[in-house]
């Protein structure tokens, strides 16, 4: 699976897709592959705030639970309710239908520090 050029990536294998003042956040294809079958997703509520590099939820595979860290600071404006019913969507389409939350970007400059898709692909190769 390719990593979209319009997305930015963290070292903890989250992606953020900025769109105007908002952004969608999810975990990368590499992350879902490492986790294996995802069976449970724990997400914040709309209106909660998230902070860059702080955990906002968790993703559980059959084997283990993993924290998800926010790539950016903002306020949650949307949560992917599909994942409560179909957590496997995260395995099937991690960069699309398997998004986790939508946030307002309160500090858009934070995006600068994140990796581009090319940089991220290099990063996971080296890992």
């Amino acid at each position: 699976m390719s990593y979209p050029e319009t997305y930015k990536f963290t070292r903890e294998h989250e992606w953020v897709h900025p769109h105007g003042a908002e952004a969608k956040i999810g975990i990368t294809d590499h992350a879902q592959h490492e986790l294996g079958d995802i069976v449970f997703v724990n997400l914040p509520k709309v209106g909660n705030s998230v902070k860059r590099a702080e955990t906002f939820g968790s993703v559980e595979s059959v084997k283990a639970v993993s924290d998800v860290y926010s790539p950016v600071t903002g306020e949650v404006t949307g949560v992917n309710d599909l994942l409560a019913q179909k957590p496997e969507t995260l395995n099937e389409d991690p960069h699309g239908e398997g998004w986790l939350i939508k946030v307002t970007l309160t500090s858009p400059e934070e995006l600068q520090a994140l990796m581009s898709s090319a940089e991220y692909e290099e990063y996971i190769k080296a890992e």
């Binding site: 294996g36 079958d37 595979s61 059959v62």
Partner: peptide, 20 residues
């Protein structure tokens, strides 16, 4: 297979996926 350290052994944790 996805290989892991299982008590000092390099063992397959899964092939196609645990659920399958």
């Amino acid at each position: 297979a996805k290989m892991v350290d299982f008590g000092g052994w390099n063992m397959p944790i899964q092939y196609s996926g645990i659920l399958q």
